[in-house]
Design a protein around this nucleic acid. Sequence first.
DNA 1: CGAAATTCTTGGAGCGCTCCAAAAAATGGT
DNA 2: ACCATTTTTTGGAGCGCTCCAAGAATTTCG
Lengths: 349, 349
Amino acid sequence: MPTLADVGKAAGVSRGTVSNVFNRPELVRPELRQRVEAAARALGFGGPDPKGRLLRDGKFNAIGFMPPGAYAIAEVMRSPYGRELVLGVSLACDEAGTTLSLVNGTDNTRFASIREALVDGFILGHSGDIGLITSAQRRRLPFVILENDAGPDINSIKIDGRSGAVAAVRHLTGLGHRHFAILSIRRTPGPPIVHMPGQAERPLLAGFSLDDERLDGFKQGLAEANLSIDDVPIIETTPGDPSAGAVVFDNVPEATAILTMSDWQAITILDEAVRRGIEVPRHVSVIGFDGTAESARTTPPLTTVAQDVIGKGRLAARMVLDNQPPRQVVLPVELVVRASTAAPRAKIR
Amino acid sequence: MPTLADVGKAAGVSRGTVSNVFNRPELVRPELRQRVEAAARALGFGGPDPKGRLLRDGKFNAIGFMPPGAYAIAEVMRSPYGRELVLGVSLACDEAGTTLSLVNGTDNTRFASIREALVDGFILGHSGDIGLITSAQRRRLPFVILENDAGPDINSIKIDGRSGAVAAVRHLTGLGHRHFAILSIRRTPGPPIVHMPGQAERPLLAGFSLDDERLDGFKQGLAEANLSIDDVPIIETTPGDPSAGAVVFDNVPEATAILTMSDWQAITILDEAVRRGIEVPRHVSVIGFDGTAESARTTPPLTTVAQDVIGKGRLAARMVLDNQPPRQVVLPVELVVRASTAAPRAKIR
DNA sequence: CGAAATTCTTGGAGCGCTCCAAAAAATGGT
DNA sequence: ACCATTTTTTGGAGCGCTCCAAGAATTTCG
């Protein structure tokens, strides 16, 4: 690989001049410039190597996005929520002319990735592990934590998951529902986990803190209607598990309303309902979470706890780009009532 | 920002030792290691700056993705097709442990971006401009061109757009349709352009070469049924233009079948049809393109010319990651018949 | 025509790191 | 206690570039 110096030698000029030819051509006499360009072409030199500049100038002009927990980038891109989040981030990156690096932080490589990533700042999905934050702080780059409050010194953005969950339950109890199933998120790979009432280990503090918060919101909402979450079956599935619907219908046939933690899960339920000839909302009501674009397109359109996912991504990017004093932002959620919920009317079959 | 040397001085050891503490801790005596770690902590040194390593070792461990034409990353992320493409790329990146950099190549910064991007290879969306390719070649990094054949020396992946378009028309003419509208893609920002039959400038070679190819396929398919594309209105809209449906219905009310160039456009049509009380496929048949996941979820589910978008993205990434001799891949397409097409049955209204 | 003003070109310094050959220190055997 | 080994540590070289002050060449103008 030829370097500036090689080209300079070939053209009989100094490194500096060759550099100028590529970066500030107006500074160099046309005749000389042409000679340099010819030499560069002859040597197959395609412009200054960005590595050199980088060391000198020190800006990557990129921000990094790292998914929470052990999720891979592809898993993020597969979920409706993840796609909108990345879209929001990319919106801000476009505006700022910044590159968006999707950094893989699989398990044990997570901290190494943070140490090594070629970025000027981070958006970090956060599952609750403390190591992540110290790791990020060490790097001394602006960063923002998603879906977790990491204290007053650290940028964070989360949604008000609890209120959302409460609103979802209120809506359903208001409609007259008394028999629920909760579809929660399993944050480790593996098959669905079914927690029936009365079992010992209830997963009330098992997942990401956002999950716990929402579970707590469900609990509160149920309590308001004199119902106990301890009597409600909770099923945990990985975010896109296609069997979620089957597992719910098989294990909780008496449920007239299903609370989920993402639109994706709710969509899965809808699909399984169609397969089984179960009608939504006539036989069972289903409520999503996130309010992604997809939730409006399903049949029937989903009632869902909506948040501004795109706005969240965009804000996250802005926060690392702007590098202002740390803020802890809690974004509101809003129940969007569409057609997947109704008063319990018919028994299945 | 402290450096290796600073830490070394503070701990009374050499740069090299500090480097080892961070990169090959097993090489340094535990006692010394602790001293160094303490010094690092005291100075707030969070590990070797990746910039330095980079210059020394020269691998970014990242591949770049640049959208075609003047599209921004966010525009890619907005489209169902773009999302699946990026998903496919990220799948391969995950497997390879590589970072995926979404590089903005807006118009005039496009070539500069190629020169400067901190990546080991490129996936380049290609609109047909020759400068792009020379620019990429200059960088001497592996790259692959999407949706264009750039000759035998250059990696490229495209779909067989012509066959797909022909298949779409055949399906529709086979159903008995004689009155078409074509929804083509406007590749510059702006409002829809309506080309009615008989007008001078027909857009048969206006857009990306993929668009031209598909238009040509439509032409051929129509010709097989003794129909001339010159009699078919062609409307060009930007990919996600929400007014596309309205423009089509307003300008070509007599069409019983609408050919589009993406699922996204077809979905837009479906939405507008609902708004106007037009029934698909009873009043009008609509056919999509790409076969994205979204196309299966619409009401009614879309008949579409499907391609393996995820596979394409993945293959593209593999090609730049593997850096084998150049290949030109043409991916097959397949007509997936669902419920948005039927024999023309009812006149609208 | 020559000095002053202007335009171009030069090359040293330094960005932070890792590699590596060689020096230093520790260990082991006799 | 000494020498041969083995384990640790060292510091020079160099990765490719841009900046910048200073020097060289060219132009301008009285």
